[in-house]
Design a protein around this nucleic acid. Structure first.
Lengths: 134, 134
DNA sequence: TCGAACCATCACATTGATGTGAGGGTCAAG
DNA sequence: CTTGACCCTCACATCAATGTGATGGTTCGA
């Protein structure tokens, strides 16, 4: 499929698809005329990239992570250097922190909304502390 | 406390503390000499801001959210317009999506790491789909 | 009184993720 | 053959979150 279709199917501007390619997040074959030719698989891939970006990960990290998230990853383990594994562990922990922080604050918002709309103010004030971002 | 101490205690560059103030995320009194004078409470506040920023929320949104997250929020409900409540709901849902996406991908990384280090490859390949970011 | 260590504002630079447009090929349908 | 809808590659603009430095005021201890 060409870039226009991928763009429509993923809701992603063409500009960004080219950008993701430039950042080595996706690869595209080229038709003889030079047009990008995307695999069907790219649809999921792009959605995943957008999700990770939206979750706050930079492309640099996503590029590292993606190879481990490939669907048939049972087959070939990429060349996993110790440094790379350490980086992954670190990123996993950062993501956990992020999740906790997000959940805490989201719940606070939800609680506030419930209180405002339910008419009964929350009984106990809750203290919020974001995860330490060292 | 002055900006230096707040900077140290929160691990945040002074530049950013001034920036957060410019974005109306924190407020500082001024000493007669013009120095910023921060309340003790600002320490938590700044940590929270950093957590939210790190979680991917822009300052514009954080500014909207923060008033609802104040500790003694049992006392005075801010002027909650319907539009504001709707915005909060929307943001709450976005945060939920974000959380789900992060968890999915984090678990995939964790599973990969476990597999690599445990020596036994994962038995079932899992398909990952990020939350639709409309 | 002088210097070190604070603080202030202002302003320009950078980085990552994007927007936008110019200038120019490809190709199918009319 | 021409037109419209694609595609290409630059390349510059923007926006938010930061870095960095210039220039100068305040405070305090040696």
């Amino acid at each position: 499929m060409r870039i226009g279709e991928l763009s429509e199917r993923t809701g992603t501007p063409r500009r960004l698809l080219r950008y993701y390619e430039e950042q080595s997040l996706i690869i595209a074959d080229r038709s003889p005329n030079g047009y990008r030719d995307y695999d069907e698989f790219c649809v999921d891939r792009v959605m995943q990239i957008r999700g990770l970006l939206d979750a706050g990960l930079p492309t640099r990290i996503i590029k590292q992570i993606l190879p481990c998230l490939n669907k048939p990853r049972t087959i070939h383990f990429p060349d996993a250097t110790p440094e790379m594994l350490a980086a992954l562990e670190h990123e996993r922990d950062r993501m956990t922190e992020r999740v906790n922080c997000l959940i805490r604050n989201r719940d606070a918002i939800a609680e506030y909304l419930d209180a405002v709309r339910g008419g009964n103010p929350p009984s106990t004030a809750r203290t919020l502390e974001p995860a330490g971002t060292h």
